[in-house]
Computed example of a mutant assay.
Amino acid sequence: MDIDSFWDLIEECRRQVQGPDERLAWLRGELSRRSLTEVVQFQVRLDEVTHEAFTWDLWAAADRIFGGWCTDDGFCYFGLWMVSLGRDVFSQAVANPDALADAPEVQGLLGRPREVWNDDWPGWESLDYVAMEAYGILTGVDDECGEAFYDALDAEQRNSGDSSEPLGKRWDVRCEDEASLRLPRLSAMFPLRSLTY
């Protein structure tokens, strides 16, 4: 599965079903009708694109949307959620994180308390497990830890050498002057309230 086939599958999933659970079920079903190699390659492509989004500027955008803080795990799930927005939105956000302000999924969060975002929450952890689940369906092996899948994934990735640190320079989204320069639209859309840590 090359990168174009990966994004075609993501786009088809967006067209077919709504909601994170329904999309996962659709993807799991679609992947479980493919070869083991394609299932592993789906995960390889997913890891590659989420690594593209692993930048301090996108972390700041997530921080802003989340009200001034976003955990390490929360940012990983945010990157997976960005994949669900489709190739165009994803690519635009990687190039300019403030472009997320144009995404209907981000605009739909405006004016709503975070406590009621529910299925609209900008994070999608489960996407990171769908290929492993499809692999289990294809092999018929109940492998809760996914050892066979991750062995196949390691063999396919061939030591990608990805950094464990985000790309770019870290900055504090809570500094309003800098945030308004770097993320003007997201800063206006998601003003920070008094924060307690």
Score class of each variant (00 low, 15 high):
C13Q: 13
C13G: 07
C13T: 09
C13A: 14
R14W: 02
R15Y: 10
R15P: 03
R15V: 11
Q16W: 14
G19I: 02
G19R: 04
P20A: 13
P20Y: 09
D21C: 01
E22W: 07
E22S: 11
R23Q: 15
R23S: 10
R23N: 07
R23T: 02
L24Q: 14
L24W: 09
L24R: 10
L24A: 08
L24N: 11
A25G: 08
A25F: 09
A25L: 12
W26N: 02
L27G: 01
L27T: 04
L27Q: 03
L27I: 06
L27F: 06
L27M: 06
R28G: 06
G29N: 06
G29E: 03
G29L: 00
E30Q: 10
E30Y: 07
E30P: 03
E30F: 06
E30V: 09
L31P: 02
S32Y: 02
S32W: 00
R33S: 03
R33Q: 08
R34I: 01
R34C: 01
S35T: 10
S35E: 03
L36G: 08
L36D: 08
T37K: 02
T37E: 13
T37N: 03
T37V: 09
V39I: 15
V39A: 08
V39F: 00
Q41P: 03
Q41L: 12
F42T: 05
Q43F: 07
Q43P: 03
Q43T: 05
Q43H: 12
V44Y: 00
V44K: 01
V44L: 01
V44C: 03
R45E: 05
L46R: 03
L46F: 11
L46A: 06
D47N: 14
E48S: 07
E48A: 13
V49D: 00
V49Y: 00
T50G: 02
H51A: 15
H51R: 14
E52S: 09
E52P: 00
A53E: 11
A53L: 13
A53N: 12
F54N: 15
F54V: 03
F54K: 13
F54D: 15
F54R: 13
F54L: 15
F54C: 14
T55W: 14
T55A: 12
W56A: 08
W56P: 05
W56N: 08
W56Y: 15
W56E: 15
W56R: 10
L58E: 12
L58N: 09
L58Q: 11
W59T: 00
A60V: 07
A60I: 04
A61P: 10
A61I: 07
A61G: 08
A61F: 08
A61L: 11
A62I: 10
A62R: 10
D63E: 15
R64W: 03
R64E: 06
I65V: 15
I65S: 07
F66A: 11
F66N: 12
F66I: 09
F66C: 12
G68E: 05
G68D: 06
G68W: 07
W69S: 15
W69C: 10
C70R: 04
D72M: 09
D73E: 14
G74K: 13
G74C: 11
F75P: 00
F75Y: 13
F75G: 01
F75K: 05
F75D: 03
F75E: 05
C76F: 12
